[in-house]
């Protein structure tokens, strides 16, 4: 056990640097993904056919081609066209687009899950579509979508390890460096690696769970242990 802490303190500057990269990718990716998810999700239920079809095509495109391929497009292909994003931005944009497309499926599903009578009553009150969505539908869908977004957030944190493939020195990279140090060795290096990722994912997931509880309380629902595995599987397929 003391070996473990010794190794961690020896490598703490590097691990800290790695964690910074991983956290920046997670945070940046999550922000981009949320914006993409909300925009595409709203387009998917909008009354305008062009928006619906357009968002469908974009979503299926990003879901269907692999994250790594998209990232390589940003990293290897874009510079050929004069768009030379730094690695970190490639990562953030790549993760954001990919998980944003997944997220939009969760957002769409939750908006659709709001009871039909709610829509009908907004019509009865002559509310415009944007007003109805903003004031009535969205607040109800929000509580429903959080569990699904939570699952995706954990996946996004794990997805940041693609950084390795575009030369970024994230946590995974430094764990691999530590592993090669005979003073540290396999078990301690990877023990630390799994622990850090687990803690980051757990922190994100617990934070979102608090938001979820709050949203449910606002809607007057009891805190449910909603099973969202099926919806998540469908979103990421």
């Amino acid at each position: 056990m003391s070996d473990f802490f010794q190794a961690i303190s020896d490598y703490s500057p590097y691990l800290w640097e790695g964690a910074r990269v991983t956290l920046a990718l997670s945070g940046g990716g999550a922000v981009v993904a949320l914006v993409v998810a909300v925009v595409l999700g709203l387009c998917a239920i909008s009354p305008v056919a062009v928006l619906r079809v357009g968002s469908r095509v974009i979503v299926e495109f990003f879901r269907g081609t692999s994250l790594v391929v998209q990232l390589f497009f940003l990293f290897y292909v874009f510079p050929l066209f004069g768009i030379d994003l730094p690695g970190m931005w490639c990562g953030i944009v790549g993760l954001g687009l990919n998980y944003g497309a997944y997220g939009s499926e969760v957002v769409r599903g939750s908006l659709n899950a709001v009871a039909k009578v709610q829509w009908e009553s907004t019509t009865a009150l002559s509310m415009s579509w944007p007003l109805a969505v903003r004031r009535v539908i969205w607040p109800q869908a929000w509580g429903l979508m959080l569990p699904g977004l939570n699952n995706l957030m954990v996946m996004l944190v794990k997805g940041t390890a693609v950084a390795l493939l575009i030369g970024l020195h994230d946590l995974t990279y430094w764990v691999e460096v530590m592993r090669k140090d005979p003073e540290v060795g396999l078990w301690i290096a990877y023990g630390a690696g799994f622990l850090f990722y687990y803690l980051i994912a757990l922190a994100c997931s617990s934070g979102l769970r608090l938001l979820e509880r709050r949203a449910q309380r606002r809607l007057g629902l009891a805190p449910s242990k909603t099973r969202t595995t099926r919806a998540t599987a469908e979103a990421v397929a």
Partner: peptide, 22 residues
């Protein structure tokens, strides 16, 4: 199972190879 689900595949792949080598 939670830990496996919440940690990255690339890390797990590298780990598997490292065990194999060791």
């Amino acid at each position: 199972l939670d830990v496996i689900r919440m940690t990255p595949l690339p890390l797990q792949l590298l780990f598997a190879v490292a065990i194999f080598i060791s």
